[in-house]
Each structure stands twice: as structure tokens, then as C-alpha cells.
Design a protein around this nucleic acid. Structure first.
Lengths: 257, 257
DNA sequence: CACCAAAATTGGTTGGACCATTGTGCCAAT
DNA sequence: ATTGGCACAATGGTCCAACCAATTTTGGTG
């Protein structure tokens, strides 16, 4: 069986007590998970120093560092020389760590890849939201929608925060927390290398009307309609991306002349 | 967390070096990327030993190990004690990494959540595969399909390895590496707590025929049909899960009496 | 109290040593 | 000539002790 990219299994182990199992750094991470949860540490809090951890766990500092390096790579922890190691995200047992990798993050195809994932997931989330939305959910989504529309008219353009809040409300209504997590990662990937939409001034503008039509479908408990509107919304973003890519190609051509 | 959609006025071009901290292990990874590309190393190939790398790069072996640990955590590399360090995925400059941590549990709802994600993504992957499959892709998928069917008939039941290989072939044909990465995580999350499908003896059995119908749709370059078959396939897994949950509930009831 | 320099703290790096696992090749028995 | 097993080398994993570099704390001085 082909193993997933990365899966770590967190099991119960004594808190900050000597480790004995093979693969020491795994054991260190297990113990660290339990320590964090038992101490109730939250993002921003400081972890014990490497030397303290090494002493308590009866392993060398090298092993502790190797374990912390892995957590750092997963974005769970941040290290500041001279200061300490700080928790960067919530850590609990039974969490699945999945590092996503795009072979070449800044070309047109890779950006389109993130949209293909969003296309599949946002459509599905819209379906589930339409099926499961309570009256309170619908009221909440509408509130976010109105806020977004107000911001749009005030600024004559899409406002990223309010836009995201609206989508977030839809994802949460779906009742499946994975949608929010994964789509947020796609969103982040997309904008990491495209913070500046290649010459597309009114980026996202075309998606505006579909926010309300999506809401209407959800409010009407119409899964099929919700799916259709979600797809239309994503399609406008794909169009923006294609226009940006075209602009870029034109610029390159011009600069060559 | 989430970056704005709007145009940012002050954007640092990724081309200009963003003054990354002059940290050694980062430099080691950059050098390794160059080495891998210049040598044309491919997944499965062996990297130089840690000692050799340390000597050539003029850094300590500890630093090399820290860098390799990070690549290992990203799934780019696999280390085998006594054997060596092996490339596990394509490595290029401009790779984009994003760690994603997902909540997971062993309850019925959490398992169903993973299937909801798969429903959205597998359907989309099937569509893209049907749109983009080359003749070689189709031959490759069919080869995996036949292997799976042979294993099925030989063992009178689904074989997880061959089943996964088939789906993997479909995902890869989609041309989007994110499908494989995300769905693999869902697959793992699903089976982590459900290695023994709760009393469902013929788990996965019902999904068998839809593998070939899915293949037929892809081979016919029929995206709509491929989507439909992928959805049917996932639906059978959802049914199995529901049956398992029902069995479990029954057992609990019986044990209480 | 405000400010600054020295000292302590903490993560980052180094070199060397040894352990555990794996791969290789030699050699003897068949 | 083939095979089986065993010694040995190669390689990643762990440990230790020391030092470097950045940061924080401390304590004294104006």
C-alpha cells in the first residue's frame, strides 16, 4: 500500500517521563503532545527549553532538537534564538499532519491546481450546507453576505476579509470542519505567489453577484442550485486567473521587444 | 492567515531575494535542490550520505541532518538506517510547501467527514482525468484495473493495495498533484481508526463494479459519466460505513443487556 | 526613574564518538 | 558450482561537551 505523505500517530504516553520506545524523536513528540495538552498550552505560549526537555525526557538535546525541527516544519512551533520555542498552532492528539507540496508554486498551472481543488470542495460544501442549514445558520450567512455587499459598494470592489467571512460561514454550516481547513490552505497557496494579481485590477469583481445567488440557494434548501452557484463563483475566479496569465504573457512579449 | 484578494500596493517581487535569515540548513537545502536537479535525480534515487554532504558543503553533519529531517517531514525524502537517504518525490526549485493540520477522530461523524471530502475531490479528479487522459494514461489505468480485478477474484474480496493503486493512477492522470496528497490523507484518516471495518465482512465489496465503469468513462473521455461513476463508488463506501456504525450500535446495545 | 552595559539564558552549530541496522562479499559446506 | 552463513564495512540514529549568536534579564549608574 502506498503510504500517505505523512502521518504521525499520537498515542498516550506518560507526561515528560523517560522514553523507551524505538525511534526516540517520535516518542519525544508523543510526550510533548501530552505535555502541551496537560498544561493547557495555547498558541503563543512558550515551551520548555531544549535543555530542560532533554533532561526530563532522558534523551540528548540533539534528539529533542530533531523532534522540534519536525514540528517547526509542520508549522506547529516557532523557534527564536535567544528567546525560546513557542507554540504556533493548537496541538492535540489525533491530529493529522499533511504537508502539501506543489512542484512549482508560481506558474499558471499550479495556481489553477489550487482552484481545481476548491472547485470540488466548495461545490460539495455548498451542497451540504443547503441540506443541513438551520434557520440560525441561514441568518448568520446572510449577515455575513450583507456585510460583504456593504463593503463592496463602499469600496467599489471586493473586500477580502468580508468575502472570506462569508465563505467561512458557508463551510461551517456544512458541519464538516475539513472543508474550512483544506480550502483555507488552497486559498493560502493561491495567494502566496499571487499576492499581486498580474495586472488584473478588478480581481474578484465578477464573483460578486454569485455570493447572493449562492446564499439564496442555500436559504431555499436547494442543494443542486447551491452547487451550481458555487461552481459559477469559482469559474469567475478561474477567469480572472486566465486574464492575469494572459496579461503576464503580453508583458513578457513587450519586454522582449 | 488568509491573505486579501485585493491588489496590494507594496509587493516584494519573489525574484528579489527576500533576505531569508542566513540560516545554514536553508542554505543546505538550496544546495541540495541544485544538486538533485543538476544530477537529474528522480524519485527512488539515492542521495549522497550525510557524511559526504557535510564534507562537501563545509557544514557539520548535524546541520545536514537537520536539513534532511525537514525534507523528510515534507515527504520529499526517505531515510533508511544502514542503507541511505532516498528521494521520494520530485524536487525542484520554486517548490511550494504548506503544512496542513486536520482534526480527526474515530467517531462515525469524523469518518463520514473524510468521505465527504473524497466525494468532492474524487468526482472532480475523475472529471479532469476524463478530460486530459492520454492514451498512455488510459493504458496505465487499465493495467491497474486488471490487477485489482485479478486480486479481487483470487481473494474473493477487495484488495486494499491494488484498489489504491488504481485510484492513484486516476489521480495522477488528472495532472493535479494535490488530489493525490489530500485524498491520501483522507484515506489514511479513514483507515487509521477503521482497520477492521466494524463487523462489515465484505467491506468495499460493493464498490468493485464501479471501478470498471469509472475506467470506461475515462477511456471514453466522458467527464460527466466519469463524475457519475466516481460518485457511485464513493456512495458504496458510505453505505459500508453506515452499516458498520449500525453494527457497532447493535453490539453496544447487546453488551449492555 | 531612565538608560545602558554586563551577565545569564536560549536556540544554532560544531566535532567527535559510539550504537543499530543494512548491504556486501568472502568462505566453507554441500 | 550453488548455497548458506558469517564477518565486515557503510550508513543513518543517538549521544556528549563545548562553543557561537541572538535575545532577555539583571543590576548599576546618571
Amino acid at each position: 500500500m502506498v503510504q500517505p505523505i505523512l502521518v504521525k500517530r499520537f498515542v498516550i504516553s506518560p507526561i515528560l517521563s523517560p522514553v523507551h520506545t524505538p525511534s526516540r524523536d517520535d516518542a519525544v513528540l508523543h510526550a510533548l503532545v501530552d505535555f502541551v495538552t496537560s498544561e493547557g498550552l495555547r498558541p503563543g505560549d512558550r515551551l520548555p527549553t531544549e535543555r530542560v526537555l532533554a533532561e526530563h525526557l532522558k534523551v540528548s538535546r540533539t534528539t529533542v532538537r530533531e523532534a522540534l525541527t519536525r514540528w517547526q516544519e509542520l508549522g506547529l512551533v516557532e523557534r527564536r534564538q535567544g528567546s525560546g520555542t513557542y507554540l504556533k498552532a493548537a496541538v492535540t492528539r489525533n491530529m493529522l499532519h499533511l504537508p502539501l507540496t506543489l512542484p512549482s508554486g508560481n506558474d499558471f498551472n499550479s495556481l489553477m491546481h489550487t482552484l481545481e481543488i476548491r472547485r470540488g470542495l466548495e461545490a460539495e460544501a455548498a451542497v451540504l450546507s443547503a441540506e443541513r442549514a438551520s434557520d440560525a445558520d441561514i441568518a448568520f450567512i446572510e449577515q455575513k453576505l450583507v456585510k460583504m455587499e456593504d463593503a463592496f459598494h463602499a469600496r467599489h470592489g471586493m473586500s477580502a476579509d468580508e468575502d472570506w467571512d462569508f465563505h467561512l460561514a458557508v463551510f461551517r454550516t456544512s458541519g464538516n470542519p475539513l472543508f474550512e481547513q483544506i480550502i483555507a490552505a488552497m486559498y493560502e497557496m493561491f495567494h502566496r505567489f499571487w499576492e499581486h494579481p498580474l495586472g488584473v485590477q478588478d480581481f474578484g469583481h465578477a464573483s460578486f453577484p454569485y455570493h447572493r445567488t449562492l446564499f439564496n440557494a442555500i436559504a431555499a434548501r436547494d442543494p443542486i442550485g447551491a452547487r451550481a452557484e458555487a461552481l459559477k463563483l469559482i469559474a469567475t475566479v478561474e477567469d480572472d486567473l486566465k486574464r492575469g496569465a494572459a496579461n503576464l504573457k503580453k508583458q513578457n512579449k513587450k519586454s522582449q521587444e
